[in-house]
């Protein structure tokens, strides 16, 4: 199972087993990783599952879609590595993925 590492804004890390086909948001909720709110439940319509993908992993995770880019307008402290974790679907290539969780989800 691909291992996913979440690092919160205080630097604490949460390493959990992800499941291929699930999203990085769903995996965080399932394992009680703090800081991912996911108010809309994964519909890409609330921007409260915002994460920063570790620069080394940006190529693997790809670019956000137009819809996701639009939704990111509703999040705060957007950086080039900003993604909505409900749009990151886990594949075997995600094994070792590191994402950082912002202090605020709005």
């Amino acid at each position: 199972m691909p291992k996913i590492t979440y690092i919160d804004h205080e630097g604490r890390d949460f390493i959990v087993d992800g499941e291929v086909g699930q999203t990085v948001m769903e995996t965080a909720i399932k394992h009680d990783v703090p800081g991912i709110v996911a108010e809309c439940g994964g519909a890409c319509s609330c921007a409260t599952c915002h994460v920063y993908v570790d620069p080394a992993w940006r190529e693997t995770t790809g670019e956000p879609s137009q819809m996701e880019e639009d939704m990111l307008d509703f999040a705060f402290d957007i950086r080039p590595e900003s993604r909505l974790s409900c749009q990151l679907r886990i594949s075997d290539a995600f094994n070792g993925l590191i994402v950082r969780i912002p202090e605020h989800q709005g």
Partner: peptide
């Protein structure tokens, strides 16, 4: 001296 932030809605 006036700011209007529009970042959508939350519950």
């Amino acid at each position: 001296d006036r700011l209007l932030p529009f970042f959508g809605l939350t519950m």
